[in-house]
Design a protein around this nucleic acid. Structure first.
Lengths: 131, 131
DNA sequence: CCTTGACCTTCCTGTAACTGGAAGGCCTAT
DNA sequence: ATAGGCCTTCCAGTTACAGGAAGGTCAAGG
């Protein structure tokens, strides 16, 4: 299967697939004319990568996970450790964003948003204490 | 005030301050020896930028907001529009992360995490249907 | 006067994970 | 022969800086 086919089947852009080969995540064969040829295992691995990336794992996490995926003698504890760390990172990011959201939401609500220049958003950003 | 002073006062690393000058967000004067000199207005603007960045605004949003901050004849509606768009983006990111968190959390819980190789996390990433 | 250490400067490179685009080869159909 | 739709590689750009090298400046101490 050529790269467009692999792209359609996995949902990954062809550019991304080439990039994954570049950085050594997959090693598709080449046809005589130089075209990449994706076999079942390649397609499996690409699907795996697509799912892992969709869950927010970094490329390096994906590399490790894919290695474990292909290693029949892995210990599931290794997988769990990676996933747990990532889960904690996600939870921290959510907390950060929620803090931002609360502040921003208050500011947006308090701004009348008309032609007049006075604006609590700018006042707050400028360092004024709010009350 | 020199760059270290500005850094301490605003909480921004000196590198970041130089970068902000590079991209035209601030224009501190220069002393005869070439050192940057930060006046009150520069420090105000840097504080503004630090606060805006802490709320997750992009640099380009910051540029726009700073322009409005310094424009006495602004309309607060312009500020509110930028802030609202950003708020929506944050809310979308939170939703995305929460979706990831739920999936990941289920997977982590379901993985026993020991020496055995079988692992629901890898099964799921590999495309197995979960139940 | 010289040195030392703490400043300061500019410039170059690297980060994460791709995306866009140029230049050119291959393949199939008309 | 040519047109189109594939495919290839390579180079540059994205975001918001951080790290580090090479070198100038300044105040204090010997």
């Amino acid at each position: 299967m050529n790269i467009q086919g692999a792209s359609k089947q996995t949902g990954l852009p062809a550019k991304t697939i080439r990039y994954y080969e570049d950085i050594g995540l997959i090693q598709p064969d080449r046809a005589a004319n130089g075209y990449r040829h994706f076999n079942t295992r390649d397609l499996h691995n690409l699907t795996f990568l697509a799912r892992a990336r969709a869950l927010g794992f970094t490329i390096e996490d994906c590399r490790a996970l894919l290695g474990l995926y292909e290693d029949e003698s892995r210990a599931s504890a290794e997988v769990k450790t990676i996933a747990q760390k990532h889960l904690q990172a996600i939870e921290e990011k959510i907390r950060d964003l929620q803090t931002m959201r609360e502040t921003l939401s208050e500011l947006v609500t308090s701004c009348h948003g008309d032609n007049r220049p006075d604006c609590p958003i700018l006042s707050d950003l400028g360092g004024a204490s709010q009350d």
